[in-house]
Protein backbone atom coordinates (compact mmCIF):
# COMPACT_ATOMS: atom_id res chain seq x y z
CA UNK A 1 0.00 0.00 0.00
CA UNK A 2 1.27 3.46 -0.83
CA UNK A 3 2.11 5.41 2.30
CA UNK A 4 3.21 8.66 0.75
CA UNK A 5 2.18 9.95 -2.64
CA UNK A 6 3.61 12.98 -4.38
CA UNK A 7 1.94 14.12 -7.54
CA UNK A 8 3.33 16.68 -9.99
CA UNK A 9 4.94 18.88 -7.36
CA UNK A 10 6.24 22.29 -8.45
CA UNK A 11 8.03 24.81 -6.25
CA UNK A 12 9.75 28.13 -6.96
CA UNK A 13 11.66 30.73 -4.99
CA UNK A 14 10.74 33.93 -6.75
CA UNK A 15 11.44 33.24 -10.40
CA UNK A 16 13.81 30.32 -9.76
CA UNK A 17 12.12 26.98 -10.24
CA UNK A 18 13.41 24.46 -7.71
CA UNK A 19 11.03 21.54 -8.25
CA UNK A 20 9.75 21.08 -11.79
CA UNK A 21 7.10 18.42 -11.46
CA UNK A 22 7.97 15.57 -9.09
CA UNK A 23 5.76 12.50 -9.06
CA UNK A 24 6.65 9.61 -6.76
CA UNK A 25 5.04 6.93 -4.62
CA UNK A 26 6.48 5.53 -1.42
CA UNK A 27 5.24 2.16 -0.17
CA UNK A 28 4.64 1.13 3.46
CA UNK A 29 7.83 -0.14 5.07
CA UNK A 30 10.04 1.13 2.28
CA UNK A 31 13.27 3.10 2.74
CA UNK A 32 13.75 5.55 -0.11
CA UNK A 33 16.77 7.72 -0.76
CA UNK A 34 16.43 11.07 -2.50
CA UNK A 35 19.80 11.29 -4.20
CA UNK A 36 21.25 14.24 -6.04
CA UNK A 37 23.85 16.97 -6.12
CA UNK A 38 23.42 20.13 -4.11
CA UNK A 39 20.84 22.27 -5.86
CA UNK A 40 19.06 19.28 -7.33
CA UNK A 41 15.99 20.00 -5.18
CA UNK A 42 16.23 16.92 -2.96
CA UNK A 43 16.21 18.81 0.34
CA UNK A 44 13.46 21.12 -0.90
CA UNK A 45 11.37 18.06 -1.78
CA UNK A 46 11.91 16.64 1.70
CA UNK A 47 11.01 19.97 3.32
CA UNK A 48 7.89 20.18 1.17
CA UNK A 49 6.80 16.77 2.43
CA UNK A 50 7.47 18.01 5.98
CA UNK A 51 5.41 21.14 5.36
CA UNK A 52 8.34 23.52 5.83
CA UNK A 53 8.19 24.74 2.23
CA UNK A 54 5.08 25.63 0.29
CA UNK A 55 5.00 24.31 -3.29
CA UNK A 56 2.97 26.24 -5.82
CA UNK A 57 1.44 23.25 -7.57
CA UNK A 58 0.81 19.58 -6.93
CA UNK A 59 -0.50 17.19 -4.31
CA UNK A 60 1.13 15.42 -1.34
CA UNK A 61 -0.81 12.67 0.44
CA UNK A 62 0.13 10.71 3.53
CA UNK A 63 -1.80 7.44 3.80
CA UNK A 64 -5.09 8.36 2.12
CA UNK A 65 -5.11 11.89 3.50
CA UNK A 66 -3.96 14.76 1.29
CA UNK A 67 -1.81 17.14 3.36
CA UNK A 68 -1.05 19.50 0.52
CA UNK A 69 -3.14 20.26 -2.51
CA UNK A 70 -2.41 23.50 -4.31
CA UNK A 71 -5.54 23.35 -6.46
CA UNK A 72 -7.77 22.87 -3.41
CA UNK A 73 -5.86 25.45 -1.37
CA UNK A 74 -4.98 22.81 1.21
CA UNK A 75 -1.75 23.12 3.17
CA UNK A 76 -1.74 21.25 6.48
CA UNK A 77 0.82 22.92 8.79
CA UNK A 78 3.90 20.89 9.77
CA UNK A 79 2.70 20.21 13.29
CA UNK A 80 -0.52 18.65 12.05
CA UNK A 81 1.17 16.29 9.58
CA UNK A 82 2.53 14.11 12.37
CA UNK A 83 5.74 13.23 10.54
CA UNK A 84 9.18 12.69 12.02
CA UNK A 85 12.16 14.65 10.69
CA UNK A 86 15.82 14.23 11.52
CA UNK A 87 17.60 17.47 10.69
CA UNK A 88 21.02 17.61 9.13
CA UNK A 89 22.26 19.65 12.09
CA UNK A 90 20.11 17.46 14.40
CA UNK A 91 18.49 20.67 15.75
CA UNK A 92 18.43 19.36 19.31
CA UNK A 93 17.08 21.97 21.70
CA UNK A 94 20.07 23.01 23.80
CA UNK A 95 17.95 24.08 26.80
CA UNK A 96 16.29 20.67 27.20
CA UNK A 97 17.84 17.42 28.41
CA UNK A 98 17.97 14.43 26.11
CA UNK A 99 14.91 13.03 27.86
CA UNK A 100 13.00 16.30 27.45
CA UNK A 101 14.02 16.63 23.82
CA UNK A 102 12.53 13.23 23.10
CA UNK A 103 9.53 13.67 25.41
CA UNK A 104 8.43 16.99 23.91
CA UNK A 105 6.45 15.42 21.06
CA UNK A 106 4.60 13.19 23.54
CA UNK A 107 3.89 16.11 25.88
CA UNK A 108 2.32 17.96 22.96
CA UNK A 109 0.12 14.91 22.44
CA UNK A 110 -0.93 14.93 26.11
CA UNK A 111 0.45 11.48 26.81
CA UNK A 112 0.01 10.51 30.47
CA UNK A 113 3.10 10.76 32.63
CA UNK A 114 3.70 7.06 33.25
CA UNK A 115 3.26 6.12 29.63
CA UNK A 116 5.45 9.02 28.56
CA UNK A 117 8.26 7.88 30.85
CA UNK A 118 8.01 4.38 29.54
CA UNK A 119 7.85 5.32 25.84
CA UNK A 120 10.78 7.73 26.01
CA UNK A 121 12.83 5.15 27.88
CA UNK A 122 11.93 2.51 25.30
CA UNK A 123 12.90 4.64 22.32
CA UNK A 124 16.13 5.79 23.99
CA UNK A 125 16.95 2.16 24.67
CA UNK A 126 16.19 1.43 21.06
CA UNK A 127 18.87 3.86 19.90
CA UNK A 128 21.27 2.66 22.58
CA UNK A 129 21.12 5.76 24.80
CA UNK A 130 18.91 4.46 27.60
CA UNK A 131 21.27 5.66 30.31
CA UNK A 132 21.93 9.19 29.01
CA UNK A 133 18.49 10.80 29.39
CA UNK A 134 19.70 13.37 31.94
CA UNK A 135 22.43 14.79 29.77
CA UNK A 136 22.22 17.95 27.75
CA UNK A 137 22.88 17.77 24.00
CA UNK A 138 26.18 19.66 24.25
CA UNK A 139 27.49 16.97 26.61
CA UNK A 140 27.19 14.32 23.91
CA UNK A 141 29.28 13.30 20.91
CA UNK A 142 28.08 13.88 17.36
CA UNK A 143 27.11 10.25 16.95
CA UNK A 144 25.08 10.29 20.16
CA UNK A 145 23.36 13.54 19.18
CA UNK A 146 22.34 11.96 15.92
CA UNK A 147 20.76 9.07 17.82
CA UNK A 148 18.86 11.51 20.03
CA UNK A 149 17.56 13.30 16.94
CA UNK A 150 16.39 9.99 15.56
CA UNK A 151 14.76 9.02 18.87
CA UNK A 152 12.96 12.37 18.99
CA UNK A 153 11.55 11.75 15.51
CA UNK A 154 10.51 8.17 16.26
CA UNK A 155 8.94 8.46 19.70
CA UNK A 156 5.39 9.34 18.59
CA UNK A 157 5.28 6.65 15.88
CA UNK A 158 5.07 8.89 12.82
CA UNK A 159 3.64 7.26 9.68
CA UNK A 160 6.68 8.43 7.71
CA UNK A 161 10.09 9.44 8.97
CA UNK A 162 12.16 11.95 7.02
CA UNK A 163 15.93 12.25 7.32
CA UNK A 164 17.92 15.18 5.91
CA UNK A 165 21.50 14.09 5.22
CA UNK A 166 21.46 12.20 8.51
CA UNK A 167 25.05 11.02 8.32
CA UNK A 168 26.82 14.04 6.86
CA UNK A 169 28.00 15.37 10.23
CA UNK A 170 29.60 12.10 11.32
CA UNK A 171 33.20 11.16 10.61
CA UNK A 172 33.94 8.51 8.01
CA UNK A 173 34.32 5.51 10.32
CA UNK A 174 31.20 6.33 12.33
CA UNK A 175 29.24 6.89 9.15
CA UNK A 176 29.83 3.35 7.92
CA UNK A 177 28.55 1.92 11.20
CA UNK A 178 25.58 4.32 11.27
CA UNK A 179 24.44 3.26 7.78
CA UNK A 180 23.91 -0.30 8.86
CA UNK A 181 22.54 0.70 12.25
CA UNK A 182 19.93 3.09 10.84
CA UNK A 183 18.77 0.64 8.21
CA UNK A 184 18.43 -2.15 10.76
CA UNK A 185 16.47 0.08 13.15
CA UNK A 186 14.05 1.37 10.52
CA UNK A 187 13.52 -2.14 9.13
CA UNK A 188 12.95 -3.57 12.59
CA UNK A 189 10.28 -0.96 13.31
CA UNK A 190 8.80 -1.48 9.84
CA UNK A 191 8.78 2.28 9.18
CA UNK A 192 8.42 4.16 5.94
CA UNK A 193 11.47 6.37 5.61
CA UNK A 194 12.60 9.01 3.14
CA UNK A 195 16.12 10.28 3.40
CA UNK A 196 18.14 12.83 1.50
CA UNK A 197 21.74 12.26 0.60
CA UNK A 198 24.32 13.33 -1.96
CA UNK A 199 26.42 10.21 -1.42
CA UNK A 200 25.49 7.37 -3.77
CA UNK A 201 27.28 4.77 -1.63
CA UNK A 202 25.23 5.84 1.39
CA UNK A 203 22.05 5.72 -0.70
CA UNK A 204 22.80 2.21 -1.93
CA UNK A 205 23.72 1.01 1.55
CA UNK A 206 20.58 2.22 3.32
CA UNK A 207 17.79 2.42 0.75
CA UNK A 208 15.46 -0.13 -0.74
CA UNK A 209 14.84 2.29 -3.55
CA UNK A 210 16.67 5.31 -4.85
CA UNK A 211 15.12 8.37 -6.47
CA UNK A 212 17.79 10.23 -8.41
CA UNK A 213 17.09 13.94 -8.85
CA UNK A 214 18.72 16.53 -11.07
CA UNK A 215 17.67 20.10 -11.70
CA UNK A 216 14.35 19.66 -9.91
CA UNK A 217 13.30 16.58 -11.88
CA UNK A 218 13.47 12.85 -11.25
CA UNK A 219 16.12 11.33 -13.48
CA UNK A 220 15.59 7.72 -12.48
CA UNK A 221 13.93 5.77 -9.71
CA UNK A 222 14.52 2.15 -8.86
CA UNK A 223 16.40 -0.31 -6.70
CA UNK A 224 20.08 0.35 -6.06
CA UNK A 225 20.96 -2.51 -8.44
CA UNK A 226 18.85 -1.05 -11.21
CA UNK A 227 20.40 2.36 -10.83
CA UNK A 228 23.91 0.97 -10.76
CA UNK A 229 23.64 -1.58 -13.54
CA UNK A 230 21.03 0.01 -15.79
CA UNK A 231 21.39 3.78 -15.59
CA UNK A 232 19.04 5.47 -18.01
CA UNK A 233 21.26 8.40 -18.84
CA UNK A 234 24.83 9.55 -18.91
CA UNK A 235 24.12 11.63 -15.81
CA UNK A 236 22.73 8.63 -13.94
CA UNK A 237 25.65 6.45 -14.92
CA UNK A 238 28.15 9.11 -13.87
CA UNK A 239 26.40 9.75 -10.56
CA UNK A 240 26.14 6.15 -9.47
CA UNK A 241 29.65 4.88 -10.06
CA UNK A 242 33.20 5.53 -11.22
CA UNK A 243 33.47 5.34 -14.99
CA UNK A 244 35.68 5.52 -18.04
CA UNK A 245 34.23 7.80 -20.67
CA UNK A 246 34.98 7.38 -24.36
CA UNK A 247 34.04 10.36 -26.52
CA UNK A 248 33.26 9.13 -29.99
CA UNK A 249 30.65 8.90 -32.77
CA UNK A 250 28.21 6.11 -33.59
CA UNK A 251 29.68 4.09 -36.53
CA UNK A 252 27.14 1.32 -36.88
CA UNK A 253 24.08 -0.13 -35.13
CA UNK A 254 22.93 -3.76 -34.86
CA UNK A 255 20.48 -5.61 -32.62
CA UNK A 256 20.41 -3.21 -29.67
CA UNK A 257 24.15 -2.55 -29.86
CA UNK A 258 25.99 0.42 -31.26
CA UNK A 259 29.57 0.59 -32.52
CA UNK A 260 31.89 3.39 -31.51
CA UNK A 261 35.63 3.64 -31.84
CA UNK A 262 38.60 4.47 -29.67
CA UNK A 263 41.61 5.73 -31.64
CA UNK A 264 40.66 3.58 -34.62
CA UNK A 265 39.71 0.44 -32.74
CA UNK A 266 36.01 -0.56 -33.04
CA UNK A 267 34.08 -1.12 -29.81
CA UNK A 268 30.57 -2.53 -29.55
CA UNK A 269 28.39 -1.40 -26.65
CA UNK A 270 24.77 -1.45 -25.54
CA UNK A 271 22.76 1.21 -27.29
CA UNK A 272 21.24 3.07 -24.30
CA UNK A 273 20.19 6.37 -25.81
CA UNK A 274 19.10 5.44 -29.32
CA UNK A 275 21.66 7.70 -31.00
CA UNK A 276 21.65 7.46 -34.82
CA UNK A 277 24.65 6.56 -36.96
CA UNK A 278 27.31 9.30 -37.16
CA UNK A 279 25.84 11.15 -34.18
CA UNK A 280 28.21 12.11 -31.35
CA UNK A 281 28.04 9.58 -28.54
CA UNK A 282 29.76 8.74 -25.28
CA UNK A 283 30.78 5.24 -24.31
CA UNK A 284 30.69 4.57 -20.58
CA UNK A 285 32.14 1.61 -18.71
CA UNK A 286 32.63 1.12 -14.98
CA UNK A 287 36.24 0.87 -13.88
CA UNK A 288 35.80 -2.60 -12.45
CA UNK A 289 34.43 -3.94 -15.78
CA UNK A 290 37.61 -3.19 -17.76
CA UNK A 291 39.75 -6.33 -17.91
CA UNK A 292 43.45 -6.53 -18.68
CA UNK A 293 43.81 -9.50 -21.07
CA UNK A 294 46.59 -11.35 -22.88
CA UNK A 295 45.95 -10.76 -26.57
CA UNK A 296 43.81 -9.06 -29.13
CA UNK A 297 40.22 -10.01 -29.99
CA UNK A 298 36.66 -8.70 -30.18
CA UNK A 299 36.14 -5.41 -28.24
CA UNK A 300 39.76 -5.32 -27.21
CA UNK A 301 42.10 -2.38 -27.55
CA UNK A 302 45.83 -1.92 -27.02
CA UNK A 303 46.83 0.75 -24.50
CA UNK A 304 50.03 2.10 -23.01
CA UNK A 305 50.32 1.80 -19.22
CA UNK A 306 50.91 5.34 -17.98
CA UNK A 307 50.94 4.93 -14.21
CA UNK A 308 49.76 2.61 -11.47
CA UNK A 309 48.44 3.47 -8.00
CA UNK A 310 48.45 1.01 -5.13
CA UNK A 311 45.17 1.21 -3.17
CA UNK A 312 45.63 -1.59 -0.67
CA UNK A 313 43.11 -4.16 -1.79
CA UNK A 314 44.00 -3.68 -5.46
CA UNK A 315 45.89 -1.60 -7.98
CA UNK A 316 44.41 1.09 -10.15
CA UNK A 317 46.06 1.44 -13.56
CA UNK A 318 45.87 4.42 -15.87
CA UNK A 319 46.26 3.61 -19.57
CA UNK A 320 46.63 5.90 -22.52
CA UNK A 321 45.03 5.03 -25.81
CA UNK A 322 45.36 7.71 -28.45
CA UNK A 323 44.17 10.96 -26.92
CA UNK A 324 42.01 9.29 -24.23
CA UNK A 325 42.83 7.72 -20.91
CA UNK A 326 41.26 4.55 -19.51
CA UNK A 327 41.40 3.39 -15.93
CA UNK A 328 41.12 -0.19 -14.72
CA UNK A 329 41.58 -2.21 -11.53
CA UNK A 330 43.81 -5.26 -11.37
CA UNK A 331 47.03 -6.88 -10.23
CA UNK A 332 50.42 -5.22 -10.60
CA UNK A 333 51.49 -4.81 -14.24
CA UNK A 334 54.75 -4.25 -16.03
CA UNK A 335 55.28 -1.08 -18.02
CA UNK A 336 54.46 -1.15 -21.73
CA UNK A 337 51.48 -1.90 -23.93
CA UNK A 338 48.64 -4.08 -22.67
CA UNK A 339 45.37 -5.32 -24.18
CA UNK A 340 42.15 -4.18 -22.51
CA UNK A 341 38.84 -5.99 -22.89
CA UNK A 342 35.66 -3.85 -22.68
CA UNK A 343 32.75 -6.39 -22.62
CA UNK A 344 29.98 -5.16 -24.99
CA UNK A 345 27.20 -5.78 -22.46
CA UNK A 346 29.06 -3.63 -19.89
CA UNK A 347 29.85 -0.78 -22.26
CA UNK A 348 26.95 1.64 -22.52
CA UNK A 349 26.61 4.02 -25.42
CA UNK A 350 24.75 7.24 -24.55
Amino acid sequence: MAKLIIDDLHLSYGSTEILKGITATFAQGEIVALLGRSGSGKTTLLRSIAGLEEPKKGVISIGDQPVFDAAAGLNVPSEKRGLGLVFQSYALWPHKTVFENVAYGLRLRNVAKAELQQRVAAVLDGVGLGHLGDRYPHQMSGGQQQRVALARALVYNPPVILLDEPLSNLDAKLREEARIWIRTLIKRMNLTAVFVTHDQVEAMAIADRIVLLDGGRIVQAGTPEQLYTEPVSLFASEFMGVNNQIKSRVQDKRGGYARIELSGHPLWGKDRAGKGVSEDATGVIRLEQVEVVDGEGENRIPAELETSVYLGSHWEHVFRCGDQTLRAFGRPLAAGTHWLHLPPEQLWVF
Binding site: A50, E79, K80, L85, Y104, L108, A153, Y156
Partner: peptide, 29 residues
Protein backbone atom coordinates in the same frame (compact mmCIF):
# COMPACT_ATOMS: atom_id res chain seq x y z
CA UNK B 1 18.91 30.48 17.14
CA UNK B 2 19.04 28.45 13.97
CA UNK B 3 15.72 28.18 12.12
CA UNK B 4 15.86 24.38 12.31
CA UNK B 5 15.45 24.46 16.10
CA UNK B 6 12.03 26.02 15.58
CA UNK B 7 11.21 23.87 12.57
CA UNK B 8 11.98 20.80 14.66
CA UNK B 9 9.35 22.00 17.13
CA UNK B 10 6.75 22.37 14.39
CA UNK B 11 7.54 18.90 13.03
CA UNK B 12 7.11 17.23 16.42
CA UNK B 13 3.68 18.80 16.60
CA UNK B 14 3.91 22.21 18.29
CA UNK B 15 1.78 25.08 17.03
CA UNK B 16 3.58 28.35 16.17
CA UNK B 17 2.48 29.82 19.52
CA UNK B 18 3.87 26.87 21.46
CA UNK B 19 7.10 27.03 19.49
CA UNK B 20 7.52 30.65 20.63
CA UNK B 21 6.68 29.79 24.21
CA UNK B 22 8.50 26.47 24.65
CA UNK B 23 11.48 26.91 22.35
CA UNK B 24 12.19 30.41 21.05
CA UNK B 25 11.74 32.37 24.30
CA UNK B 26 13.64 29.90 26.55
CA UNK B 27 16.44 29.80 24.00
CA UNK B 28 16.83 33.59 23.90
CA UNK B 29 16.39 34.00 27.66
Amino acid sequence: IGPELEEAGRIVGASPGRVSRDLTIPLVK
